[in-house]
Design a protein around this nucleic acid. Structure first.
Length: 421
RNA sequence: GUGGGUGUAGCUCAAUGGUGGAGCACCUGACUGUGGCUCAGGGGGUUGAGGGUUCAAAUCCCUUCACUCACCCCA
């Protein structure tokens, strides 16, 4: 076999696409209920958009992006996540021009150069949403409630919603400084990564999984105590709203996201049904990102979920079924000629119809009809042609009757297919 | 980038140094034109690739590739 799919990419085959379609439909319907409109964006952007948006020192920007020069010499990057592009479009298209809340959702492939493992691919798919223009805690709570309710409605096992507040421009620097002062004397005992993080992004030390680092942070400053009054109130209000809506959650002060743009509320939705990559959905508030990209100060927040990971948690039969076809079994060349226009007529009326292309034995054709999950089979041979009838067989009820050829189409497609002529 | 595991028929897997098999799937027939059950037969393989040891390698050794899980990181 000469050509193979690139490492970390997969073919999503016909059986699997029905599961994808169901999931996409359920989220499309949920987003409509919550007032989100779909937005479709390019899968590549200027490299600088991501570097600026996600943060220069994040792992994604430092070593995971698919970056390449185009023929004009511009540096482009396949999107590693969705938020940066949505913010770019929000500003470029002036989507906030009318004021008030702007709610957008998207889905599509994302690209990160990582070693593949369970629930992690180089091309993977996200469904996400962004809400611009609302700074109050109601927006945070509503987004969290939407994500939690929609995913738990799918029947996902072992769901856990963890939330935290990272503070804002006013208070996060104090917390950061306190962490540096606490960990600096302990630097020799930190892992290699964390020694580097001490200067670049000390918050990340809090969720390092190395044994040594985990023990050291037992006495580390608690982020909650460093929140300024407005951040503290905001977080308390979010928690109160979640309580009022009966959304279960756990406050996890050690949870730090890997993207620099988050402020205040962050969250992760994990499932015990996955492997090591157990985050199904995650997101948070990013009140400075729009400004960072040159827009007017605009609060924002959003989330994204991993489609492959969520599908890993759903039963194999959670699918949107294709309509079951009518199968036209023709015996002999004359019958095949007779059947051909009926196929077009049925399909034109909105009925799924199939046949056997090779004129094989009736047994073979019935077997194929069965494999295609045909609900009815029309059998036509020389005898039927001569008599002007066909045999109409119901595959599940095992009944068979004769139908006059002239009545066949009306029998199989009784109501004229109104849509689209 | 680092480590572990696995590569044998379309799929799931046997065969631990001595003639590469089974189940499922597929095709044909029993049934000249009626599917799912049964029976019989059939098609299919450079045992991932390359090298080495041996009278003899799917099996042991080396290299390489792929897949996979984990670290890391994240959705």
């Amino acid at each position: 076999m000469k050509y193979k799919a690139i490492k970390g990419t997969r073919d999503i085959l016909p059986g699997e696409t029905q599961r994808w379609q169901r999931l996409e439909r359920l989220f499309r319907e949920a987003f409509a209920r919550y007032g989100y409109s779909e937005i479709r964006l390019p899968i590549f952007e200027e490299t600088a958009l991501f570097a600026r948006g996600l943060g220069d020192t994040t792992d994604i920007v430092e070593k995971e992006m698919y970056t390449f020069p185009d023929k004009g010499g511009n540096s482009l990057t396949l999107r590693p996540e969705g938020t940066a592009g949505v913010v770019r479009a929000y500003l470029e298209e002036n989507l906030g021009g009318e004021g008030g809340a702007v709610k957008l959702w998207y889905t599509g492939p994302m690209f990160r150069y990582e070693r593949p493992q369970k629930g992690r691919f180089r091309q993977f798919h996200q469904i996400g949403a962004e809400l611009f223009g609302v700074g109050g805690p109601e927006a945070d709570a509503e987004l969290l409630q939407m994500v939690h309710a929609t995913i738990s409605a799918l029947g996902v096992p072992g769901l856990s919603l963890q939330i935290n507040s990272l503070g804002d421009g006013a208070c996060r620097p104090d917390f950061r400084q306190a962490l540096i002062e606490y960990f600096r004397p302990l630097a020799p005992q930190l892992c290699e990564n964390c020694r580097r993080r001490l200067e670049t992004n000390p918050l990340r030390i809090l969720d390092c999984k190395a044994e040594g680092c985990r023990l050291l942070r037992a006495g580390a400053p608690d982020g909650r105590e460093f929140l300024c009054a407005p951040c503290r109130e905001h977080f308390a209000a979010v928690c109160g709203l979640l309580d009022a809506a009966a959304v279960p959650y756990i406050v996890n002060p050690a949870m730090v996201r890997g993207l620099d743009y988050y402020t205040r509320t962050t969250f992760e939705l994990t499932s015990s049904g996955l492997g090591a990559q157990d985050t199904v959905a995650a997101g948070g508030r990013y009140d400075r990102l729009v400004e960072e990209f040159g827009g007017a100060a605009t609060p924002g927040l959003g989330f994204a979920l991993g489609v492959e990971r969520l599908l890993l948690l759903l039963p194999p039969d959670a699918v949107d079924e294709a309509p079951r076809p009518v199968f036209l079994a023709a015996l002999g060349a004359a019958a095949r000629r007779a059947v051909w226009p009926w196929l077009a007529e049925l399909r034109g009326r909105g009925v799924a119809a199939e046949w056997d292309y090779e004129g094989r034995s009736l047994k073979s054709q019935l077997r194929r009809a069965d494999r295609l999950r045909a609900r009815q089979v029309v059998i036509v041979g020389e005898n039927e042609l001569a008599a002007g009838v066909v045999q109409l067989r119901d595959m599940s009820e095992k009944t068979q009757r004769e139908v006059a050829t002239a009545d066949l189409i009306e029998t199989l497609a009784p109501t004229a297919y109104a849509e689209g002529g």
